[in-house]
Amino acid sequence: MKLQPDQFDVQSITAYGEGWVAINGEKHAGSLIISSQGQRLSWPVSRFEDLTEAHFEQLADIDCELIVFGSGRRNRFPPAAWLKALMARRIGLETMDTPAACRTYNILAQEGRKVAAALLIEGGEPAQP
């Protein structure tokens, strides 16, 4: 019996490494936001220390039920005050290092969940607004 891998009609993170991530085989060197609904946005930040409340307000405009935040090389949490806009829209946020966020996003997206990933790519080229 020949087995075929499952095919999904959502954006998938197909690879990642130091300073980059590949979405459906297309390599990106800057931080970005992707969603299982097809959105792909640049996220103009390259260091955790440069994040502000405005970066998380941008996430509140995404049509999803959960955002997986990849906080870079290690797990770091944003201040709770920065999450007001997400809480107001009843959007959950899970924080983990970026490699774990890539894997978690793929699992949830392939399950058909309305999920987004906000991926901080440290060491890559800064994304342009």
Rank of each mutant, 00 (worst) to 15 (best):
M1L: 04
I62M: 05
A60H: 11
Q128R: 06
K84D: 14
T14A: 05
K84M: 05
S12R: 10
E94A: 02
L51N: 01
S71F: 09
A15Y: 06
F48C: 02
D61P: 00
T95C: 14
Y16P: 04
H28F: 13
R90T: 11
Q110K: 15
E49H: 03
K2G: 07
Q11E: 03
W82H: 02
A116D: 12
I33D: 00
I91N: 05
P99A: 13
E111F: 15
I13T: 01
Y16S: 03
L86C: 13
L86W: 12
Q58E: 08
A100Q: 07
Y16I: 06
T14G: 05
R40P: 07
L93S: 02
M96V: 08
E65V: 08
R47E: 12
G123R: 09
S12I: 09
D97N: 15
N24W: 06
G38N: 10
A118L: 04
W82P: 01
A116V: 10
R74N: 14
E53F: 02
S46D: 13
A81N: 09
P78V: 01
A85K: 00
T95V: 15
L51E: 03
G30F: 00
A29N: 09
S31T: 01
L59Y: 04
T95K: 04
R47Q: 15
A101L: 10
S42I: 01
G17S: 04
A80I: 12
A127R: 03
G112A: 03
L32M: 10
T98W: 06
M87Q: 15
Q37V: 07
G19V: 06
K84Q: 15
N75E: 11
L32E: 00
A127S: 09
